[in-house]
Design a protein around this nucleic acid. Structure first.
Lengths: 342, 342
DNA sequence: CTGTTAGCGCGTTCAC
DNA sequence: GTGAACGCGCTAACAG
């Protein structure tokens, strides 16, 4: 029951492997192979369940039909969701996906790019870490299809898909201001990632435009433990008691923050407004519900995989495309002093 | 800057490709290649950044160093988390992971197994759907390393890793009973998956042992829309008003249920006890917090990948192993009538 | 002892 | 419609 080779098919049918190969690849007509023979071969292949060896094919053609997906962490629901959407489309187009998580470690990111390169993946979807511009540039220079997402590398001519962090942050902050919050704090990570910086700047723009004061709390990035985050937020609330709203730059920070506030008995919405980046079941169901900026995951994924497929189709004519999608601002109860269900 | 081949290395150094290959694969000593030559070759390879073609190597050796991961849905946080853990260990051992989601469709599951087989993955981690026993059996008969998880295929001699659904469900139900709930409903999916059946049976055992009455609500499985689930639960609560606790068999059902109950203004815990399968941030932070049965994700993943690696190492001596890990019963406020924080 | 030759794995594709 | 080279690395058998 071992695997059959094209040679065996050929010899069983007393024809050459070339003929079988042409038929397999739909070039029967082009190569003027008689319909009868074509039918005979097709039938034989079907009957004996012959499957060409993918490795041999890849070795010869240089195509693996594999897409390399490099994300910060596949276990993160955001990236997992993107992985799911991408897979659907990739699957329909005959591609499989091989993934790896950088854990935001540039060294690992570089290794991953190398490994994927060694394995001849046909295209790359990458969430870049800091300091891997040169590796990405190398891929591009080698004419390999690459699409970045979530974070861009500004200095590179490469396709990118992301969301409008600056604009959505600005709009969200403006909304809080419109709801009469006067001292809005922004809790973020101490990170230089462009998307994080944009979120901060969007907030600050809204603050400055309205002649308000900005309160920015940067939580240390690496292995930020929950209780440390809580301690920092608590400290901030104690030293700046006039703060009347918090805008969290990430999901995780917000969840930790909510836990703290619940424990402190602070009434979210009434006493303290809240806005969060990245939506989540929790924010919808929490009482009061929490307003959030939802990333357009579906749209981003679609764009990502479309761009990549297109790029893989015609490597030469393809021109890079930067897509910045609008986020969805979801207004719930936490961003108004008068709660609907209060 | 195209890729260099072993042949080029050999000719540049005026030696044979065999020599280079032996050195590359650490067989220099075994093959009595002089240390000087070894050093020279190593240096040359380093300098010119030569990387052997993985495809050629795989074609020759039959090993791809790729693990095929077939889950129900990679976008589901549970599977994504498993994927993350597995990746860590796989990576350290030189394996990459190629994934695909079955969406619980047997047809797709079969296709995926075929595809992965075509692509010569070295090992399989599979969340089986119904009706793919024969495909899995085929893999096993072909001596391919397979580990199942989440759901077992009872009739197959194959390694399996999962958690003790029956026991943990039984314990959780018993706990509710011990907290003086008398009419406990069990809300589950209308599914014949073994793990779902075990959860139901565990609940029923606790009910019967205590001479209570079981209320089982099976929600239709396919594409269960939120509002339909809500309608079903609401109907149940109306027709069986004496129900004083709900035990949800899945995370998703519970989230939907909580949303409904909050809307109805039912006081979870006091008026209606609650227990849920699969933990989640939401359950921890919800007020009142929701008791849950947490899957031992870390432990399961570790066991999964260990078993598979072992199996891939010595295909012959390996004997199948069934691992059923205990779940973590996390008692919070929703499972007592007297809430701690009430 | 050191290192080489040559065939293999298997599908693709050019030249006839 | 075919023969044979080719993509590239591995390794048993062999020569010096």
């Amino acid at each position: 029951m071992k695997k059959m080779s094209i040679k065996e098919v050929a010899s069983a049918l007393q024809i050459s492997t070339a003929t079988v190969s042409y038929i397999l690849n739909g070039k029967a007509k082009e190569k003027r192979i008689s319909p009868e023979l074509t039918k005979k071969v097709t039938a034989f292949i079907e009957e004996n369940n012959f499957r060409p060896n993918h490795l041999a094919k890849s070795l010869r053609t240089g195509k693996t039909n594999v897409i390399g997906l490099i994300v910060e962490d596949i276990a993160d629901p955001f990236f997992a969701s993107v992985a799911g959407h991408i897979e659907n489309v990739a699957y329909e187009n005959g591609y499989k996906i091989i993934y790896s998580s950088t854990k935001n470690d540039p060294k690992k990111a570089k290794e991953l790019i190398d490994t994927f390169r060694d394995r001849n993946v046909d295209g790359y979807i990458i969430t870049p870490t800091e300091g891997i511009d040169s590796e990405i540039k190398y891929l591009i220079d080698s004419k390999l299809p690459v699409v970045l997402f979530d974070r861009n590398c500004n200095d590179l001519d490469v396709s990118y898909v992301g969301m409008n962090n600056f604009e959505s942050s600005y709009q969200a902050a403006k909304y809080l201001i419109s709801q009469d919050y006067k001292n809005i704090a922004f809790v973020t990570l101490d990170s230089v990632q462009p998307q994080m910086i944009d979120r901060l700047l969007g907030y600050e723009r809204a603050i400055y435009e309205n002649r308000l004061v900005s309160y920015v709390k940067k939580v240390e990035y690496r292995a930020a433990k929950e209780h440390l985050i809580m301690a920092e937020i608590e400290h901030m609330l104690n030293t700046e008691p006039h703060i009347d709203a918090i805008f969290f730059a990430t999901n995780y920070l917000a969840i930790t923050g909510i836990e703290l506030l619940n424990r402190l008995g602070v009434k979210i919405g009434e006493e303290l407004g809240m806005m969060v980046f990245d939506d989540n079941d929790l924010f919808r169901i929490h009482q009061p519900s929490i307003s959030a900026i939802a990333q357009p995951i579906q749209e981003m994924s679609q764009q990502l995989i479309n761009d990549l497929l297109e790029h893989m189709q015609d490597t030469n004519e393809y021109t890079n495309r930067t897509t910045v999608l609008p986020a969805h601002l979801i207004i719930r109860d936490s961003s108004s002093k008068t709660r609907k269900n209060a």
